[in-house]
Simulated scan of single mutants.
Amino acid sequence: MSDQTGLTAGEFLDHADHTLLASDTTAEQLAGFIAGAEALGVKRVCVLPSLLPVEKRGREIVTVVGFPTGAHASEVKAAETRRAVADGADEIDVVVNLGLVRSGDWRAVEADLRAVREACPGLVLKVILETAALSDDEIVAGCRAAEAAGADMVKTSTGFHPAGGASLHAVRLMAQTVGGRLGVKASGGIRSAAVARELWAAGATRFGVSATASILASWDDDERPEAADASY
């Protein structure tokens, strides 16, 4: 786990995946988003694979696979990953198969994720667990399956599941489970500097955020979440 004693605005930008995943994104909106990312100074942008390739302008490109449900055949996820790599993706965020998770078929979960890992050798691979929809035991087992499959990070949420997004409890549990061997990406509902700082202190090492500009604008705001285990 990284030093979680504090988080500056500059560090937040270094650890943020500035995100645009709306399915109705137009070419004009994408161009504005990329220009905005340049103005903000973020290191990475996260966009849908159908929007690739995009001009990098010095930033790394993150994309999603099996998004947003994860209920795709492993072969389809692998093919989507290979296409994303060919289109210039630097990092892959893959959604876990929740049906396999709920069934407790961890060998199948691992095999599904390994198919994606093998399709993007050398790239950063993050596994989206949809932690708001899982029990603690499922979160722990999901983290272990992701690690066994060769993932680099585990991630809380797509931001599209009705159960919700990131929570302090889930981030703490994920960080404890991976023990610094993998990173932890918090995503879903992060809209203020206060929330980002709380998640960082809980063990997050990366943030998936679309409200990047408003988070930066609120950085001097001393307000903290009222409940330590609030869902974001």
Results as ranks from 00 to 15, higher is better:
Lys155Met: 04
Ser231Ala: 14
Leu123Phe: 07
Phe207Tyr: 06
Ala89Tyr: 04
Lys56Met: 04
Gly32Phe: 10
Ala196Met: 05
Ile128Glu: 11
Glu110Ala: 10
Ala217Asn: 05
His169Ala: 13
Phe160Trp: 13
Leu21Thr: 03
Asp220Ser: 12
Arg44Gly: 06
Val171Ile: 11
Leu21Trp: 07
Asn97Leu: 12
Leu125Pro: 11
Gly142Gln: 00
Val109Asn: 00
Lys126Ser: 07
Cys143Ile: 00
Ala202Cys: 05
Leu129Pro: 00
Ala84Arg: 04
Ala186Arg: 08
Trp219Leu: 01
Leu51Thr: 05
Gly189Glu: 03
Leu113Gly: 08
Val45Pro: 06
Val54Cys: 05
Gly188Gln: 04
Ile128Tyr: 08
Ala73Trp: 13
Trp106Met: 00
Ala73Tyr: 14
Glu38Gln: 10
Asp105Ile: 00
Val42Tyr: 11
Val101Gly: 00
Phe12Leu: 13
His18Tyr: 15
Ala86Trp: 09
Lys43His: 11
Ala194Ile: 07
Ser74Thr: 15
Glu138Val: 00
Val95Ala: 08
Ser135Met: 11
Arg102Lys: 14
Leu20Phe: 11
Arg59Met: 15
Asp105Ala: 08
Ala71Gly: 10
Val101Ile: 03
Ala119Glu: 09
Leu7Val: 07
Val54Leu: 05
Leu40Pro: 06
Lys126Ala: 12
His18Cys: 11
Val178Ser: 01
Thr8Trp: 03
Asp137Ser: 14
Ala166Arg: 11
Ile190Leu: 01
His161Leu: 10
Val184Phe: 06
Leu52Gly: 09
Val45Thr: 09
Ala196Gly: 11
Ser167Leu: 06
Pro121Ile: 10
Val178Tyr: 04
Ser167His: 01
His169Thr: 13
Glu28Asp: 14
Glu11Pro: 00
Ala16Met: 10
Asn97Glu: 05
Glu223Ala: 15
Val154Ile: 07
Lys185Val: 03
Ser210Pro: 01
Pro53Ile: 00
Thr205Phe: 02
Asp14Phe: 09
Asp220Glu: 14
Ser135Trp: 09
Gly189Cys: 08
Glu198Arg: 15
Ala228Leu: 14
Ala132Asp: 02
Ser187Val: 09
Ala39Arg: 15
Ala146Arg: 00
Ala202Tyr: 13
Thr177Pro: 02
Gly6Ala: 14
Lys185Thr: 06
Thr81Phe: 09
Ala228Met: 14
Gly188Arg: 02
Val171Pro: 04
Val95Arg: 04
Ala89Gln: 06
Gly164Lys: 07
Phe207Thr: 02
Ser214Pro: 04
Leu98His: 03
Asp222Glu: 14
Asp93Thr: 05
Val96Glu: 00
Arg102Cys: 02
Arg107Met: 10
Gly183Pro: 00
Val184Pro: 00
Ala115Lys: 05
Phe33Ser: 11
Ala22Leu: 14
Gly183His: 02
His161Thr: 06
Asp3Thr: 12
Ser2Arg: 15
Gly32Glu: 13
Ser157Ile: 07
Val42Met: 12
